[in-house]
Design a protein around this nucleic acid. Structure first.
Lengths: 92, 92
DNA sequence: TATTTATTTAGATGTTTGCCTAAATATATA
DNA sequence: TATATATTTAGGCAAACATCTAAATAAATA
């Protein structure tokens, strides 16, 4: 999960996730939302992929990026855990 | 909230939060849990403080660090938001 | 098959980060 | 007030990071 926390620490990458929240997009369309070069966006996408936060799939000329929520849920779990005292685990 | 995400991106700092989850501790006792110099831990504690994730209060010779959960809740909110499609906001 | 379009890889550069040791500050105590 | 204890600040260094341009790769199309 360390890679996920690292990936989430960059504002551009968080914005990419927000974009993908609405719908899957290809790399070029994602890049068009930022004032950053395409190679840089490609690098961010790769980090998000390594962290398990997005999936990629080639569709002909394009590569579609999709939000992958499993790791997001893991992070939420970690965060929730922080909110409860160890010896006071709340019943569900 | 960017500072909080940055603060959470380091494993040592996340471990500090896990420690403080159980009970408040002073800087020295926190440092004793790690194989890192006290100045380095002090630096991590300062970043956590800047991010609003911990509070500090001097108690005589010691400085007590306490988990502060407001920002943790904000981050959880952001994470949850990612899980829901924009045009499909679920009713509470 | 040659060209165009989409994306990534490679390589370079400036900035940020995490760590260290040494020195400074703040409080408590002899 | 002098000394001991707790913690932070300062300064430096190596590794990681975010960005760029140029070149390489992959697929579609003329």
């Amino acid at each position: 999960m360390n890679e996920a926390f690292k990936a989430l620490s960059d504002p551009t990458r968080r914005e990419i996730l927000q974009l993908l929240r609405e719908k899957s997009m290809n790399a070029g369309d994602i890049a068009d939302h930022f004032h950053i070069s395409k190679p840089s966006i490609s690098h961010h996408l790769n980090l998000l992929k390594q962290a398990g936060l997005v999936l990629d799939e080639r569709q002909g000329q394009h590569i579609m990026y999709t939000l992958h929520t499993t790791v997001v849920e893991d992070v939420i779990g970690w965060m929730f855990n922080i909110l409860n005292k160890k010896d006071q685990e709340e019943p569900s």
